[in-house]
Design a protein around this nucleic acid. Structure first.
Lengths: 211, 211
DNA sequence: GTCTATAAGGCGATAGAC
DNA sequence: GTCTATCGCCTTATAGAC
């Protein structure tokens, strides 16, 4: 029993274990996931083929099935890692934010979210690119993952005590943040700047004649 | 020469012509387009098959090729009609808006856009659901259509004279408006109300402690 | 115009050698 | 673990009868 390996790589990081032999097998799983993330994020689920992913890491298509039972399971692993990375990017940003004024916390969370979405590793971009309905057999699981992540945003937005529908505001914020993925060009502005602009737009009146 | 028909249905509405014989042939083309719009909008391009579309109108797959040379051409026809409908919905809304204050015009345009995006006919939803990169062979053409439509939004946003990056603001507005397609539930709020909330959020300060 | 039948190719997935 | 080989299915698209 001692040598039994997790065959299906739902988790990227191997369960903690003597790090002596740098477990080459596990590295292959994350190689596959890295390549899968890039393809899923840029081409979507259906245009991405197993052959696309495996050939990117110098592997033949059939070999993928030693690590993942199906294409859908491969997507799920990327998706879970994507949620994990966005979440921890937001956590990091909130931890660095030592002012707990609600608007400042919101801006920090946005900065974290946008940072993850623009990360070249493409895991977080997969969450934005692949929607629950794209893969019917994973619909519920994907919806659950998205929902779990969005919970904290409900709290962040509620804390503002803003005089508008909180759900509307939350959706607006996340769709704005996610859209950065479409038009963002590196060098012209940073995640911090984008987050600040979004928050400024909401906090301050833009119409000089109003109120 | 008098009986020659447009074989490829790029335009839905038949070119104006003696309406005596209600051109059953042309109706079949728009039947196909209607069904295609629904499938493209809800399942995306790749998950939609020619069989899906033809069987929805009681036709066999092969027959589609009498009307459309390829699946891509079918999408293009839906896409063009989608742009046409969003555009005319925005035009209508702007025409009804007899106050030419920039913020009121923006709100009217948003109302028109959202109305079209939520239209059950699904043509406009296809524009949101199908991205330029989904169909490489149509990428440039689709990008051109999107660009043409967005031109007027540049003007609408510029007219605000708002103290933020105009491109950023425009992208946020459109992504917010498009996201209604994801979460909108009929009966809870109307396109007019959503448009007004979006504009209110931008015009008025939401943070009582600001400024 | 629509049908049937089928070609041609790509896909996910499996089996078994090494 | 990875390979080669291949199965079975589904797809777009074509050809020709009606």
């Amino acid at each position: 029993m001692e040598g039994d390996e997790e065959v299906v790589g739902v988790s990227t990081a191997t369960t903690t274990r003597p790090p002596t032999v740098a477990t080459r097998s596990t590295n292959r799983v994350s190689d596959l996931l890295d390549a899968a993330a890039v393809h899923f994020a840029t081409q979507g689920y259906h245009r991405t083929t197993i052959r696309d992913v495996t050939s990117a890491v110098g592997m033949k298509a059939g070999s993928s099935y030693y690590h993942f039972a199906s294409k859908a399971e491969m997507l799920l692993a990327v998706y879970e890692e994507g949620v994990r990375r966005v979440q921890s990017s937001v956590d990091d940003a909130l931890r660095d934010q030592h002012d707990d004024a609600p608007w400042d916390r919101l801006e920090a969370a946005l900065r974290g979210h946008i940072t993850a979405v623009l990360d070249p590793s493409a895991y977080a971009r997969t969450i934005v690119a692949v929607l629950p309905d794209d893969v019917p057999e994973l619909r519920d699981e994907i919806a659950r993952l998205r929902d779990g992540y969005e919970t904290q945003w409900r709290a962040l937005v509620d804390a503002l005590g803003a005089p508008v529908d909180a759900q509307l505001l939350r959706v607006f914020l996340l769709s704005a943040a996610n859209s950065t993925q479409t038009w963002f060009r590196r060098g012209r502005s940073s995640p911090s700047e984008i987050a600040r602009v979004i928050v400024d737009v909401l906090r301050h009146p833009m119409d000089p004649t109003s109120r």
